[in-house]
């Protein structure tokens, strides 16, 4: 699924779909959606295996936080992959600025969507754990939960920005800069949590043990499949949407030239 050709191929001498924008899509070719179903099936199997490990393999409770730690098998992989996805948004933003290709903008948006889902799962599972541990659905005194919510807002704004700009090249450039700034804002927040303390966040020592590590690794793999599936889905959807927009624009131009 490589759509990174620099410009669309003209057919029967007609005008280009969007020739002025590097990385614009050809009207045909590529294969969005290829191997999507096997990917989805592997994801379902990996998630099922992870849940089986949580029920059968992992200890039912650990010191300090008891059985409520089980939610960490959803929470920790999502938190790690959220960081990976947002780093991809940053890297894709740099590539947009270097190559001026809107192809990287599609990649950045797909990574941001995956990151936002991971972030959402981090927030929901954190909140559920908070209810079990503190009898509170939300605690603004906990720096990690609060900073995760702030980061969620930052990347939600990325999508508002992305949807608010119509011009493809301009949107790619502006969203790239915002994606870079978003990660730069995320870094001080991450270190602030270290400086200002863990709050009520459970310490890492509570997650020790071979069985827990195995289950956590399986969770990491399962959630990797899940978020990469979302990445592909968003990327393919944007590819098809932009291709259909380009085709529609071309039909309109042809109609205008004939009338």
């Amino acid at each position: 699924m490589n759509n990174s050709t620099a410009s669309p191929t003209p057919t029967n001498g007609a005008d280009l779909a969007d020739g002025s924008v590097p990385g614009a899509l050809p009207l045909t070719g590529g294969s969005p959606g290829r191997l999507f179903l096997p990917h989805a099936l592997i994801t379902v199997a990996a998630l099922a295996f992870m849940n089986w490990l949580i029920i059968e393999h992992a200890p039912f409770g650990v010191k300090q936080i008891g059985a409520s730690y089980l939610i960490a098998f959803y929470h920790v992989p999502s938190a790690i992959l959220m960081g990976v996805a947002y780093t991809l948004v940053f890297a894709a933003g740099i590539m947009v600025l270097l190559t001026k290709s809107v192809e990287w903008d599609r990649r950045a948006r797909a990574a941001a969507a995956a990151g936002l889902l991971a972030n959402g799962i981090v927030l929901v599972t954190g909140s559920v754990w908070g209810k079990a541990a503190w009898n509170l659905w939300w605690n603004f005194q906990d720096p990690r939960l609060t900073t995760s919510a702030v980061i969620f807002l930052i990347y939600l704004a990325y999508f508002v920005l992305s949807r608010g700009i119509e011009d493809e090249a301009k949107r790619a450039r502006i969203c790239a800069i915002y994606g870079i700034l978003a990660l730069l804002a995320y870094m001080p927040v991450k270190y602030a949590v270290e400086w200002f303390g863990q709050g009520s966040h459970p310490p890492k020592v509570a997650m020790d043990g071979a069985q827990i590590r195995d289950t956590l690794n399986a969770g990491l793999l399962a959630f990797f499949f899940l978020y990469s599936l979302l990445y592909r889905w968003k990327y393919d959807l944007d590819t098809l949407r932009e291709r259909s927009d380009a085709a529609l624009a071309r039909v309109r131009r042809l109609e205008d030239s004939r009338s």
Partner: peptide
Amino acid sequence: SVRGGDVLLRVVLFPLLVP
């Protein structure tokens, strides 16, 4: 230079300013 840019500015600025 974006249409509705004044609203967009607030939407993107405020979350980054929270820390």
